[in-house]
Write a protein that binds this DNA or RNA. Structure first.
Lengths: 207, 207
DNA sequence: AATTAATTTAAACAAACGTTTAATTTAAAC
DNA sequence: GTTTAAATTAAACGTTTGTTTAAATTAATT
């Protein structure tokens, strides 16, 4: 993969923020150029086109999304504690890459552009493998139930988190979270704890 | 509220599909006019502008989104069965209004347009009230735990569902769902059951 | 110091955008 | 049947869009 120089990374970061806030089609190359303090032509010069800028951005971000779970997997703690930690990792990753997730969320369901998501699929599959390992360990120790749909566990974790973020305005109002800080704290404490509790409950729940 | 005539509803439906598939900014009034077999000027004539068309669309759809839960609430079944049914209702509603949810999901996080979502908030709050009632009933009967964060229950239900829909391509591949029908069936059977199980587990889970 | 390559610029390009106009057709009211 | 209103049309409006050009500047190489 081609590396990006400082100027290119600056453009990528500005583009990421704008694409997330205004959408890809809602952002013009002039908007990007203005915010990044560069000439419009630099976008074509460096990336080829606006669409290829998006492709570069997706590639650039996803390559840094891999979670490093090897250590967690081998830690000498109970499977239930591993699950708790894993959920924190999941949420941290989605939270850190909020903008990219927002962009992907839209692009995934947009019929007019097709972006290569192999790298993203690979990351997800790898995380799923780790999760499977932990679940299996818990099942062997008799702590978790046997009929667990592992594929749908990250669905709950990430889905709940993203839905909460997307409906920020609503949740801020209904939960009485006045500042951005209040919201951020709620996400990292209450919401995370709630998701942890949910997954743990599901793992030990018997019909 | 002003009623819409047949022609207007036709335009609204076409616009809904296109906005969901290509995004608001990715859809031109010419696209809408072409697909609806009308002249471009008719959009301004009927709705004023493209933005006002979106406003009309949101209003038109959300007014029909209210779930009618009065009967469910009074049915002579256990709280746990009520929860199961309620989840089916939730999923049915989101599934039926998939396009609108997709549009809202994007518009909610788009900084450049502000759409009035009072009606949507009202619908959500009302559904939350019903849910609260059922949870309370279950708690009084000693079936549910006492420390339930009711606000975050729909978050899990709707968030998981939407996330699953958004990542359709990925899940179709990983779950071996070949046709659209396979996918739809998985959603209405497996995914729904999984969400039901998750919520039930959470309600009875003791630390 | 001279030459080559890489970067940056302002200007121009055609195409597409949302909206408006003024003329025409259709429907309704009298 | 005439008049008035509503619906529909093609054409044009001024902007904005993404991209390209060719000239100017800066950096790297010899």
């Amino acid at each position: 993969m081609t590396e990006f120089n400082e100027k290119q990374i600056e453009i990528l970061q500005v583009a990421e923020q704008l694409f997330a806030e205004e959408g890809f089609d809602g952002t013009s190359v002039r908007d990007i150029a203005k915010k990044a303090n560069i000439n419009i032509a630099m976008i074509s010069y460096y990336f080829g086109s606006k669409e290829k800028l998006l492709e570069s951005l997706v590639l650039y971000r996803i390559s840094g999304m891999r979670m490093h779970l090897e250590n967690l997997y081998q830690e000498n703690i109970s499977p239930i504690e591993k699950i708790e930690k894993l959920i924190v990792y999941y949420i941290e990753r989605v939270n850190k890459n909020r903008c990219m997730y927002q962009i992907l969320h839209f692009e995934l369901s947009n019929k007019k552009r097709e972006i290569n998501l192999e790298a993203f699929t690979e990351v997800k599959n790898q995380n799923l493998k780790f999760l499977e390992g932990i679940i299996k360990e818990g099942q062997e120790q008799g702590m978790f139930q046997s009929d667990i749909n592992v594929t749908l566990l990250p669905t709950i974790i990430i889905g709940s988190f993203i839905h909460f973020q997307m409906n920020k305005v609503y949740y801020k109002e209904i939960l009485g979270l006045k500042t951005e800080e209040d919201f951020e704290n709620y996400v990292l404490n209450d919401l995370t704890a709630h998701i942890q509790k949910t997954i743990k409950a599901l793992l030990v729940y018997e019909k």
